[in-house]
Every structure is written in structure tokens, then in C-alpha cells.
Amino acid sequence: MSWTSILAIYLLFWVITAFVVMPFGVRTADELGVEKVRGQADSAPANFKPVRVMAITTLVSAAAFGLFYANYMNGWISPDDVNIFGKPPSAD
């Protein structure tokens, strides 16, 4: 696998993980007892910390990508192992 493929796959892992990590620990203004800004949505986060989200995302995505790459190199799980539809009919 080339380094560009590794980078592209890792970035996909990172983006997907970011969307999974983002909602954890975020509270609304009502939950924190903070006054809302005029026009603010009721569901808007009041304590969003993007640096924390990026750090956790980087750690989790690195671990997930490490497992993916180890599987790629060792062939623990192949596409045949996850084929739930069985063998395709022959096109004879």
C-alpha cells in the first residue's frame, strides 16, 4: 500500500471518528445554567471544545486505523469472510 493510500484511508477514519466523538461531553446553555445569546438555538452547545475533540479523534482514529492496517497486512478478515450472500451465481 502506498503512502498516499495510507494517508487517504487514515483521513477517512479521522473524519468518521470526529463525527462520532463530537457529541460527547457537549452541554446546552440550559443544562449548564448559562444565559443564552439572543437568537441562539435551544440545542446549541455552550461548552464545545474543538481542540479536545481533535485530540480524542486523533487517538481513536489512530487506534482504529492501526487495526485496519494490521488486518490488511496479515489478512485476518478477508472479503470472503464477510460475504453474507454466499457465492454469486456463475455468469455462464
Results as ranks from 00 to 15, higher is better:
K36L: 07
A55H: 01
P88N: 06
L7K: 00
V26E: 15
Y72T: 12
P23E: 15
T58V: 02
D30L: 11
M22E: 15
V51N: 04
S43I: 07
K36G: 10
V53H: 04
A18I: 08
A64Q: 01
A46I: 06
A64Y: 01
P23A: 12
E31S: 13
Y72V: 09
Y69M: 06
L59H: 02
S78P: 00
V26P: 05
F19C: 15
V15N: 05
A41D: 12
D81W: 01
K36P: 05
S43L: 10
F19A: 14
P45L: 03
I77N: 02
V26L: 15
G39Q: 04
K49G: 02
A44H: 06
M73V: 14
W3C: 08
F48V: 08
T58C: 01
S61I: 00
I84M: 14
G86S: 07
A44G: 08
D80C: 03
K36N: 06
W3I: 15
G75E: 11
A18E: 06
S78I: 12
Y69L: 13
S43M: 07
I16T: 10
S2N: 14
A18K: 07
G33Q: 12
S2C: 06
K36F: 10
T4H: 12
Q40N: 04
L12F: 08
P79C: 05
L67V: 11
F65H: 02
S2Q: 02
A44T: 04
F85Y: 11
S2L: 03
P79N: 09
I77T: 07
S43N: 07
M73Y: 08
A46Q: 03
L67H: 02
P79K: 06
V15F: 13
V26Y: 14
Y10K: 02
Y72I: 07
L12H: 00
